[in-house]
Amino acid sequence: MSLAVQIPPPKKLNKENDPLHIIKTRRETHNRPATIAGPMVRYSKLAFRQTCREYDVDIVYTPMILAREFVRNGHARMADFTTCDQDTPLIVQVGVNNIADLLKFAEMVYPYCDGIGINCGCPIREQIREGIGSALIYNGELLCSMVKAVKDKYGDSVRLETKIRIHDDVEDTVKLCNSLCEAGVDWITIHGRTRTTRSSVPVNIDAIKYLRENIKYKNVPLVANGDCFTLEDCHRIGEYTKVDGVMAVRGLLANPALFDGYQKCPWGAIELFVHYTMQFGGLPYQLLQHHLYTMLENTGLDKPLLRELMELKSTAYLIDWLDEKFDFKRKGDPGFSKGVEIPFRDSQPKI
C-alpha cells in the first residue's frame, strides 16, 4: 500500500477524534478510563490497528518512527507510515533527539494523524546511545525544549504526548512531569518501570499513583502503561491510580479484544486481522504469521497446529491452511468476524 493511495485528506480535530478530549472525558461518558493501544515496534501496523479498533479501543498508536530517517528518506516514509481515513484517532510515535528533526517530522505527519507522541521510554541500547527513547528522561532540558518548540509553532492544532518511564527516584519523575506540563505537553503516558526494569518484573503501579497525586498540573491527563492484559486490569489500574487512560501493549498483541472484555482472542479477531492485512497490504508475511501465532496461542490451540502454522511458507499456503482446518469466513459471509470459539472443521480436535 503506497502513501499516495492510502493517506487520507488532512484531518481537522473535533470532539470525535481529538485524543485529548477523549482522554479527558471518557470517565464521564463511558464510566472508565480511555482505552489506548500502545506502540509496538513493527507490530502496530495499519491492519493490526484497525483490528484493535473493532474492540472498544479509543486511541491507537503507530510503531515508533525514527525522525532522522523519516525526514530524509522517501523510502523510509513509504515503509513506516501507512494510514487510511478510518484510522482515527491515531497517534504517530516518533523517536527523536533534536528540535530540527522533530519540527520537520511534525510538519510532515500532523495533517494525517490526530497527535504525535515522543518516545521517551524505549530501553534498547542502540536508541539510548543516540539519545533517543528512555535516554530522554535523563535529558529533561532537551525533551522539554522539543515539546515547547512544537507547541509554540502549532499550538492546539497538534496534540503532543510524551511516553516516559519512571526514574529510580520517583521524585525525579515528578520534576520531569511538571517541567513537561510547563512546556505545554497535552498528556503524559507513564510506563511504570525504570529503564533497567525487566518486563517480567511487575509494573510499579504505586509509582504511577504517586505521580498522579503529586504532579501539580492536575489539568494535564496521565495515562498508565504496563501489565494491562484484561479489561479487569484496565479497571483496576484506573481505579487505583486515578489516571485518565490505560494503555495496553503486549496484552493486545495476544488479544486485540481485551478492552472489549474478552479473556482470550476471539476467532472473529483472526478473521478481521487477515481481512485487513489483505485489504491494506504492506505487511511482511513473517509478521502476519507471528501475529496469528500470538493470537492463537492465547486461545489454547493445540501445539501441533501452532507448529503447522509456523511451518507455512507464504500467505497463499496460510489461507489454504485456515480453510482446511477451520471454518474461516471472509467479509460478506454470514457471521464474518462474529465468532468467539475456534470453528474447527469436523475432522479437527476440539479444545
Score class of each variant (00 low, 15 high):
T196P: 02
G38Y: 09
V249P: 03
F280L: 12
L296Q: 00
V57C: 14
G192A: 03
V246R: 07
R165V: 04
D152P: 04
L160N: 07
C177D: 07
K15D: 08
M247D: 09
Q348M: 15
K313E: 13
E171S: 09
T62L: 10
I22W: 05
G74D: 13
H275S: 11
V109C: 10
I65Y: 03
P343S: 06
E141Y: 07
D333W: 00
G140H: 00
G268T: 10
T162G: 03
Y217K: 07
K218N: 03
L176K: 00
M146A: 10
A224F: 06
C177E: 05
V201A: 15
D227L: 00
L322I: 01
E341Q: 12
E232C: 00
Y154P: 04
P89R: 04
F48C: 01
V57H: 08
D56T: 09
R250T: 08
H290K: 14
F273R: 00
Y210E: 04
P19W: 09
L20D: 08
V243L: 09
R345D: 10
E271W: 05
P256M: 02
K104H: 13
G131F: 01
E311G: 00
I65P: 05
M310W: 01
E232Y: 00
L90R: 06
A316E: 13
V243M: 07
D260W: 00
E271F: 11
I132L: 13
D233G: 11
L322M: 15
L160W: 01
T194H: 05
W187K: 01
A149T: 06
A183F: 02
Q93P: 04
K104Q: 15
G133D: 05
I188S: 01
G131C: 04
V150D: 08
G282K: 05
N73H: 11
R212E: 02
S199V: 08
V96N: 05
H191Q: 04
C144Y: 01
N178H: 01
V220D: 02
E341K: 13
I116H: 08
D101S: 07
Q279H: 12
I91R: 00
T194N: 06
V185C: 07
C84S: 15
L305D: 03
R26S: 15
L142V: 10
A47D: 13
L258E: 07
R42I: 02
I208V: 15
T189K: 03
L318Q: 02
Q348V: 14
P63E: 13
A254R: 09
G117N: 15
R26I: 02
K350V: 11
T82V: 14
V223Y: 06
L211K: 03
H235M: 15
I205H: 13
I270T: 02
Y43V: 15
I166D: 04
L136D: 02
D58T: 11
H75A: 14
D168K: 13
